[in-house]
Amino acid sequence: MNFYNIDYAYMVEVFPRILRTAPLTLGLAFSAMILGLIIATCLALTRVFKIRVLSTLTRVYISFFRGTPLLVQLFMLYYGVPQIIPSLAKMNAMTAAILGLSLHSAAYMAEIIRGAISSVEKGQMEACLSVGMTPMQAMRRVILPQATRVAVPSLANSFISLIKESSLAFTLGVAEMMAQARMSSAATYKFFENFLVALLIYWGISITIGFLQDRIEIKLNKAY
């Protein structure tokens, strides 16, 4: 195929059809990001405070989810786990995709958050304790706000990665952008055009998030 054989008219026609599923893709990624952040913060704090048993379990969790493919994790969660826990058989594909992406991304974000917390001077925690704060109060009021500024760039990259990884949700039957591109390709045999449109939309979303990331960084760095 050369550039003269590409059906540009069809690309213009199919663009809104694939773009229509973008909110589902973004909703999937955003939900997984929020849940993943909650899990990641808990994991990071167990390592920062070196809670004996929990710290060890956290290391195992991070090693497992970072050391195995996301696609296998999604399949295991949606098809495998209900075989052992029958009550989870009612879990729909969207729920399984959000949960799987959350658990996977949390393993990476936990290390980002832990690193950001570690970048804050230890003397600040000691100062907080000296004025009567508990470790958790010091973490919430002093350490985490400063760590947030450090973590934002990496967390924004994690969100972009989540958007791209959400394309695997189509393997569970979630009708997001990748699923729409595949269905359109199967119906028309115009694989190049459909997947190129999907790529351009993903790229556009990534550029937009990158722009917002820059604006957030500028705002957070004003005080410094």
Rank of each mutant, 00 (worst) to 15 (best):
I6V: 15
A9E: 08
Y10W: 09
F15S: 15
P16C: 13
L26W: 02
A29D: 02
S31R: 02
I34Y: 00
L35I: 15
T41H: 00
C42M: 14
T46L: 15
T46C: 13
T46W: 09
L54S: 13
S55F: 07
Y61Q: 03
S63K: 11
S63M: 09
F65H: 06
F65A: 04
T68F: 08
Q73L: 06
Q73F: 03
L77A: 05
Y79R: 13
G80L: 04
I85S: 06
A89C: 04
M94L: 15
A96T: 04
I98E: 04
L103W: 03
Y108T: 10
R114E: 07
S119Q: 12
K122P: 03
G123L: 14
L129I: 15
L129P: 04
M133Q: 14
T134F: 10
T134A: 10
P135M: 10
M139T: 06
M139N: 05
R141C: 09
A147K: 00
R149M: 04
L155C: 01
N157K: 02
F159T: 00
S166F: 09
L168W: 06
M177I: 11
A179W: 11
R182P: 07
M183V: 11
A186Q: 15
K190V: 09
F192V: 10
L196A: 08
V197W: 02
A198Q: 03
A198E: 02
L200I: 15
I201K: 11
G204N: 07
G204A: 13
I205K: 00
G210Y: 03
R215K: 15
R215H: 10
R215C: 08
I216N: 02
E217M: 08
I218S: 10
K222F: 07
